[in-house]
């Protein structure tokens, strides 16, 4: 059986939500582990405030022991998804291009937004259609995507309509060149049940499953 590993940093707070949304084929991995479980087929870095987001969001988590193995796995082509704080960690670790700065209006934003899929060829969007829109919750204070140069940046998701944080070109998520490492500010795991307002997030999980086969 192949599994999705959800890394828990001290201060992660969406780890249990991701595990719940992914169901029984997901497994938690404590940040102090040196190795991902042998049957790991994909890795998720969840949302939260790893190390309190002190210094900068995501800046301290990249030094956690597990990150060396996550980087090795990513280099070998394993799908890696960073959600919100996980996206910030991936940028800080240099596994994704760019950086996430303080929201343009300084305030934390928790709301549901429309997100457009702009690249359907990454490991995490392969089951989706380019141009299709998902309704996904966001909740962040430092989500303004910024890069000195967008040449070579694969944009996976853009905010459709309101740009809630002043991101460059409304960018909500990007991938690495190879397309196996993806980061996005919206929380797909929060759109995984009608009781909670929608199930669009499950389509990203579905896409990842399709890509894994």
């Amino acid at each position: 059986m192949s599994r999705t590993a959800v890394v828990i940093f001290p201060g992660s707070n969406c780890d249990q939500d991701a595990l719940w949304a992914l169901g029984p084929d997901a497994t938690p991995v404590w940040h102090q582990e040196e190795h991902l479980p042998a049957d790991t087929a994909a890795v998720i870095l969840p949302g939260g405030f790893a190390y309190g987001d002190y210094l900068r969001a995501g800046a301290l988590a990249r030094f956690s022991p597990i990150m060396a193995d996550v980087r090795r796995a990513a280099d070998a082509g394993m799908p890696v998804l960073g959600i919100c704080n996980g996206f910030q960690v991936l940028c800080e670790a240099g596994m994704l291009p760019g950086a996430l700065a303080r929201n343009a209006d300084i305030a934390f934003h928790c709301q549901t937004v429309s997100v457009e899929v702009t690249d359907a060829d990454t490991a995490w969007t392969a089951g989706l259609r380019r141009g299709e829109r998902l309704r996904l919750p966001i909740a962040h204070g430092e989500g303004r995507y910024w890069a000195p140069d967008l040449a070579g940046v694969r944009v996976a998701f853009r905010y459709a309509g309101e740009n809630p944080n002043g991101s460059l070109e409304s960018i909500a998520g990007v991938s690495n060149r190879a397309g196996n490492v993806v980061g996005l500010m919206p929380h797909p795991e929060r759109a995984a049940s009608e009781i909670l307002g929608g199930t669009d997030g499950l389509r990203i999980r579905g896409a990842a499953r399709a890509a894994l086969r």
Binding site: A101, R102, N103, A104, D105, I106, R144, W146, G166
Partner: peptide
């Protein structure tokens, strides 16, 4: 500090 040319929202608010 944020680099010149990068929006500094706290600076703007102050």
């Amino acid at each position: 500090h944020y680099r010149p040319g990068t929006l500094d929202p706290q600076g703007q608010a102050v």
